[in-house]
Amino acid sequence: MKNRLTRRSLLALSATGAVLALSACGGNVGGGSASAEFPSGPITLTVGQAPGGSTDLIARAAADGMADSLGVALPVVNKPGANGALATEEVAAMAPDGQNLVLLNASLITITPLAVSADEAVSLDDLDVLMGLSQDDYVMVASTKSGMENFDDIKNSGKKLSFGTTGVGTGSQLAQELILAQAGIEGTTVPFDSGSPALTAVMGDQVQVSTVQLGEAKPQIDAGTVTPIVVFSSERNEFLPDVPTAIEAGYEVPVSQYRAIAAPKGLSDDAKQKLVASIKDAVATDTYTSFNEKNMLTPNEISGEEVTAEWNELAAKYKELTDEYDISLAGK
């Protein structure tokens, strides 16, 4: 009796283990047989950020629609590390059979290289960008306790202010450093680990101003616990129509986060066409469009060639601006 119980619990244990192992490895099955018709099996979409973040949610929303369109499973696999560089380099080195894709954050290509050494910087050269997805805007918010309501208040505060960012080498840091440098404001920049603590710090007036992503700040703006100052998109954001852009306020700070799907370089035309068509199908679904709206993402569904051109242009632009105003993202 004892023996049987042991065996049974063992069996249960190993069964659980096997199930978990299968679910964990789900993303890696399939792949092979390049000669066969595309897609030859499940397609893996790798995300360089942890599960649950906005990048991951976008990947999962797109993957759902693509899977329906292509008729194969499209598991999302998270490989966080080095701001997404780890996942991007790994996928770039894979066979260009279209079975492995990666979700790209523009900041990795355009902004991170300004903060890390040259050999860690990631470029688009080894990738075929399939299509752009959406634009995620940054907004500068001030604490209600500080009483500041617009950018002039910050400029004329006469006090030394602290400015929170969501981390080194992020759009939040770049946008804020640029506007402060152009307005000639002296302040202390305080990097936090991500958007949530940077926003919390403004709510508690631990820092007076922070620049965070709109989706995170919106509930607090609506509740009046923080005051929106400027958005950094080139045009007013549809979700915050009353808040001026930095450009309107007279500063040249065109910083947003963009996302796109890419594959290893050298994709066959057939595979590329099918994949692009599936992304187009995915972004046209009601589920996806309402997902964008709820997460305050502005659709930016441009072709892969346009994405490559735009991002390379932005990278050069940011380099030029940071040189002009003598800004170093890697601390002073």
């Binding site: 590390g81 890390v116 050999d119 080194v168 601390g331």
Partner: peptide, 15 residues
Amino acid sequence: RDGFTGAERFTFGNL
């Protein structure tokens, strides 16, 4: 990676 300066610490170039 140092969260304040972006400098690599004890990573030996390993991403």
